[in-house]
Structures are given as C-alpha cells and as structure tokens.
Simulated scan of single mutants.
Amino acid sequence: MPRHWDIHRLPRIAVNCVFHIHREIGRGLLESAYETVICKVLWQEGSMVERQRGAPLTHREAPK
C-alpha cells in the first residue's frame, strides 16, 4: 500500500513533521507559512499532500 494511503502512519508522520518544523522555524509566522513548509516536507517524505482548497460556504442564506 502506498505511504499516502497508510491512515495509521500519516497522523504520526504529520505531527512529527510539525513538531520539528516548529522547533526549527519558531513561532509567530502566519499559518500559510507553516503550511507551505509542512506540505513540502511531507511531499519529500513520500506523502501525497494537497494544500487547502476553497469551498463554497453560505451562512443564513447569504453566500460568502
């Protein structure tokens, strides 16, 4: 089974990745900066990742 489908290993890989990135980069950056680095590292580790995607959302009948 490809690594990107291994649902038991992926959370551990992701948390480990985030922990190390936070230790190296530090705190205080925008979420998008961390997301960029995390996605790149996970991709290099062989995981199939995708950046956040927009989704249509409505609230009280008004499109946002």
Rank of each mutant, 00 (worst) to 15 (best):
M1T: 03
M1L: 04
M1V: 08
P2Y: 13
H4A: 12
W5D: 13
W5V: 07
I7V: 09
I7M: 12
R9D: 10
L10D: 04
L10K: 11
P11K: 04
I13E: 10
A14L: 15
V15C: 03
N16E: 14
F19H: 07
H20M: 02
I21M: 02
I21L: 10
I21K: 01
E24Q: 07
I25L: 15
I25V: 15
L29N: 09
L29V: 09
L30K: 10
L30Y: 08
E31L: 13
E31S: 14
E31Y: 04
S32E: 15
S32L: 06
Y34T: 02
Y34G: 05
T36K: 13
T36H: 14
V37E: 10
I38M: 11
C39I: 11
C39M: 12
C39G: 15
K40T: 14
V41Q: 04
L42I: 11
L42W: 01
W43I: 02
Q44I: 01
Q44Y: 00
Q44R: 14
Q44N: 14
E45I: 04
M48I: 08
M48Q: 08
V49M: 08
E50A: 06
E50M: 12
E50L: 11
E50Y: 07
E50V: 12
R51P: 15
G54K: 08
G54P: 02
A55V: 09
P56G: 04
L57I: 11
H59L: 07
R60N: 05
P63Q: 04
K64H: 09
